[in-house]
Design a binder for these strands. Structure first.
Lengths: 241, 241
DNA sequence: GTCTATACATAGATAGAC
DNA sequence: GTCTATCTATGTATAGAC
């Protein structure tokens, strides 16, 4: 569907990923465990709870965040909190599960882009844009994955690999069509992912340096492109070997 | 001093970074807070404590690890534990501070390597080798940095930036000498660091794929080199722009 | 030096008033 | 739907026997 290259602000305006959007989705997906019936009320409070949970957890870790801390930060009593989740672990899982929307948007955005180079570039930009909008969600998901129950942890790993798989497929397609050089596509994809993740893991650093997401995206894309380009092959020759 | 390029096993044999070495250093650096007088005894138990602390923390997080857990895993009583540190936070800080040896070794290893390309390659390899040997220390330091007190946290950030600075300097030197293209050296260094960190943050993934540290180092170095090379400039031209 | 037993604080979770 | 008050388990930390 999306053919034209979008700037970050345009992208942000189109996708529905505000705290309210995310909270509403979360509410709809957890009607059974949330005791509040009125959507208006529920969403309003879920926004406060999630915002508070992400802020506190990302500052000192989910395990170190007590529900009393959360209660204070969200402006709700302990009792009220427990009408929105059944246990602290439940809250963790709700937030974590919601992060899955990312994969859907990523696929949507590269759909219909045929040229491997453009497709790769689009995937990189989209991933960075998403993590820019949902920075605290991404950070939380990454850092708190180890706290999940075994079953949910397995899903998180599958999610990580599925995203990586998107990049692997693009690279292999490009190589098959002669646009990219031959290379270890899994390793290449892993390194791209590492660079994409650094954007939200070290947000403080890039913020201090006033690096914006567009520049970062361009740099990563250029770097990958420089390596993947078939002409001017620097893999074997040169001072490196 | 080191002129010849070392393989990983050679490197591992030369540096003194076994659990025992690290524990002994830690003991010497914390004589004041550790109540045990006999070095033999202290080091033996510190090894058990640190090994247990790293294992448990890296599995479920330092905050979620209770000292009862630690006591069981290390095979020492609660009382005994407290003769090796004054508080749980103290233990965290001792482990975290010990990770600083890395910076020293990194500097030692690139010292005397003049050619920017070789110097960059050496720095990349050394960082990866170090994180391979001290995988659990690196992982711990990265994931638990947020639990540090404000003062120690500041030091951790300075450490991160100091390592990055080494790469910045190599890149700028290379550019000045006409070996590397002009580029945003801080951003380049940040991305290199991101790729280096992925090696110990996602060790499970690379282990499963049977990627060894030498291959990983070569890939990262080649990729950086492909972008930094002055000839065959692909930054502006090509399908990307 | 190391252990067992215990003090004391704080955690997660719930009951029942409003 | 939300609050306050409270239960119980578990946490960190220490005292004192061996």
């Amino acid at each position: 569907m999306p053919t034209r290259e979008l700037g970050f602000e345009e992208f942000k305006g189109l996708v529905c990923l505000s705290l309210e959007d995310m909270s509403r989705e979360l509410y709809k997906g957890n009607r059974s465990s949330i005791k509040i019936k009125k959507e208006q009320v529920a969403v309003k409070n879920l926004m406060k709870i999630i915002q508070a949970a992400l802020t506190l957890s990302n500052k000192k870790g989910f395990a170190a965040m007590s529900l009393r801390d959360l209660s204070r930060e969200a402006g709700l009593s302990m009792g009220a909190l427990y009408t929105y989740f059944t246990s602290k672990e439940d809250l963790l899982h709700m937030i974590q599960r919601q992060s899955a929307v990312v994969f859907r948007v990523l696929l949507e955005q590269i759909e219909g882009v045929d040229d491997p180079v453009q497709r790769l570039r689009r995937a990189i930009r989209t991933h960075l844009f998403l993590s820019e909008i949902l920075q605290n969600w991404f950070y939380f998901t990454y850092m708190e994955a180890k706290n999940l129950a075994k079953e949910e942890q397995k899903k998180a790993i599958e999610g990580e690999l599925a995203t990586e798989r998107i990049f692997v497929d693009i690279i292999r397609d490009g190589t098959a069509r002669g646009v990219f050089r031959e290379c270890d596509s899994e390793l290449m994809a892993a390194l791209i992912k590492a660079m994409l993740q650094d954007w939200y893991l070290k947000r403080w650093k890039y913020r201090k340096r006033k690096t914006d997401v567009e520049s970062y995206a361009a740099f990563v894309a250029d770097m990958v492109q420089a390596y993947m380009a078939v002409q001017g092959d620097t893999r074997e020759g040169g001072a490196l070997t």
